[in-house]
Design a binder for these strands. Structure first.
Lengths: 118, 118
DNA sequence: TCCACTAGGTTTCCAAATGAAACCATGTTA
DNA sequence: TAACATGGTTTCATTTGGAAACCTAGTGGA
């Protein structure tokens, strides 16, 4: 079987679509550091809504990148952790976020040049 | 100045949002290999619409990741190429796409396990 | 007793983004 | 004269996104 992200109906396209997502990158980056609970993630990833966070977590769990464990406490406790498969991605995902932080000045300079031309 | 992708209104969040995009990943991967024309990109990235491709190219150009050169031929020729700044990203971006291709069997197995539970 | 609050979601609703298809200018070829 | 090429933009229907409200179950305070 040959996989090719450039082919329209290759299943890898769907996976790329899931990983190439702002919220997924942030979730995986945090979980690669340590196991966290739902509201912990929600507080640390500023601006994410509950709806979107739960959707992203569900999809990442379905793809086997993170694991969900619920405890019958009161109120209920739910822990999310990274899986072995997810861990093989974290250096790549982390590099993306770090690149944005490291190159922000250059990007802003480029934007100003572009906007000045137009 | 401290940049932090987890902060809601940090400019890096906008950059991450641009990079963490299926089409941007595919465009940057192709342009890191060689300069290409608009319709060449459109044909090689199966399933991308003209509208979205032109939007993505414009944003990547604004951020200084790719360069656009137009030639007054008939019909007009437009070339897109990667910039030095863009090149600092290509190993990371490329790793993302390759990860999807390499790990597809494991992901599909995880999905089947998940769907069987539900 | 009633209200407020917790965790972890789901539902609702409206705004924004996406995609398919059509359109455009210019000029070449059949 | 009709059809096709490039590199887009426009239009419109469908999806997706986010904000806010709601939900269940239980706990603590007044």
């Amino acid at each position: 079987m040959e996989y090719n992200v450039f082919a329209e109906n290759c299943p890898t396209r769907l996976v790329l679509d899931r990983l190439a997502d702002k919220w997924a990158v942030l979730v995986l980056t945090l979980l690669s550091q340590e196991t966290k609970r739902f509201n912990q993630l929600r507080r640390e990833i500023e601006g994410v809504s509950q709806k979107v966070l739960s959707q992203v977590l569900k999809k990442l769990e379905r793809d086997g990148l993170i694991a969900r464990r619920a405890f019958a406490t009161v109120p209920v406790t739910v822990e999310y952790s990274i899986t072995d498969l997810g861990r093989t991605l974290t250096s790549t995902i982390g590099a993306l976020a770090r690149w944005a932080e490291d190159n922000m000045p250059e990007i802003m300079a480029a934007q100003m040049r572009y906007d000045a031309t137009a």
